[in-house]
Design a protein around this nucleic acid. Structure first.
Lengths: 225, 225
DNA sequence: TCGGGGATCCTTACTTTGTACGGTAGCTTC
DNA sequence: GAAGCTACCGTACAAAGTAAGGATCCCCGA
């Protein structure tokens, strides 16, 4: 048997989590099993249990990993001071978080599925609230703003249609008579902006539109409550 | 063995799905296994496979069941004609959907987790688009509105904090020094509205606030694009 | 130098869950 | 009344998480 010592480095909680992240990035979160994770580290499944408490702990660790990456990116990004322009500061922060989320497409689903928000998320939201308060929000409005932003504060939005792989709305045509309004909408969208990036609508553009809609709405309320 | 014929009614796809819904309502979606579902019907697990294709099909059926309940509720609710007052019409529609979702707390998570939107959801969204178009929206703006509303169009919002059972923010106090802004926000929220319904903040009020924020924003854009 | 102890990793096996496969009972149809 | 179809059952297998204990290696003190 291949004992440790050859090219084999020691296992660490950190190495386990990084391997898990790499595995999820490549093959999706579904293919992340304790066995596959162990195999990717050249180790047996049960060996992982000396470094993480269980699969739950691995998933929690993954969330922490992503949130740490976001915190790092946010720290490097240079938006304006919130006191001067909270809206742009928030916009930069959210879009920075979004870039990280786009690198880890499994992260939104993982965060959603987890019931309790992990501490790393709570800490991130604390930063968001801090930004708004520095920008002139009352705590009450900041609270409502968090609810209004929902997962957008974390840089992702809940896609109700995840475009179905290869057809991208083509399946809608098959049932156009049953969903006439949607069919017309899709037709119009394709006509208006024929070169969208991600199927029949551009997620990034839509994300920013919705984000700005909410930020503008909040800005109108700020100061006059 | 208890052959069918005693008090035992015949199994149907419909009865299977209703039993699944009841089980999920009572004990949560996690406790819905093919075996527990079969047991609740007085039947063995493999018998279900003559009426549903598999567990996936059961889950899809549950989504359809909830969406049908929403369609029924929406049909009965009487909002204004969209041509006269689209905003109120939409508000009534969404809040009606929300009532159904509150009866089936597992439904949001189930809908989120499913990658592809099932046809019943697509059809519901078609109705939403139809409402907006009748209210004077271009298809382009209706499209963006769908993105902005996100899951709110279906009556739920993604709770990033699901209040953790018994403490309800009490756990925040333990780490108040690490999340000072959130801690202050919670303190202010408790002070402002001491009688909230669902923990430290009132989901219904927040949901309506965010919904109105978005609807107002959309209303401003409607007609002047 | 050497032996003990703890950390690390492996082996085996159990549990839960979904489901494939084939068997059996009862109804339907000719 | 026989054939066959349908609904249901029993058995069993695979995947995945993980409990329990054994084996190996490294470090440290004597």
């Amino acid at each position: 048997m291949a004992r440790r010592g050859e090219a084999q480095v020691r296992l660490t909680r950190g190495r386990v989590l990084e391997a898990a992240c790499a595995l999820a990035d490549e093959d999706g979160l579904a293919s992340l099993t304790m066995r596959s994770l162990a195999a990717s580290l050249g180790v047996e499944a049960m060996s992982l249990y000396h470094h993480v408490a269980g699969k739950q702990a691995v998933l929690d660790g993954l969330v922490d990993l992503v949130m740490a990456e976001i915190e790092r990116a946010v720290a490097e990004a240079d938006g304006p001071e919130p006191e001067r322009d909270w809206k742009t500061a928030m916009r930069v922060r959210v879009l920075t978080a979004r870039e990280v989320m786009l690198r880890h497409p499994w992260a939104p689903g993982l965060i959603e599925s987890r019931g309790e928000a992990s501490f790393s998320i709570v800490r991130y939201l604390d930063g968001v609230v801090g930004l708004m308060v520095r920008g002139g929000f009352s705590y009450g409005l900041a609270h409502r703003a968090l609810h209004a932003l929902e997962s957008r504060a974390l840089g992702f939005s809940q896609e109700m249609f995840r475009p179905g792989g290869d057809d991208d709305g083509g399946s809608l045509e098959a049932v156009a008579d049953q969903v006439p309004n949607l069919a017309a909408m899709v037709a119009a969208a394709v006509h208006d902006q024929p070169d969208t990036r991600l199927g029949w609508c551009d997620d990034q553009a839509e994300f920013e539109f919705a984000l700005d809609l909410i930020l503008d709405g909040l800005d109108r309320l700020r100061g006059r409550e």
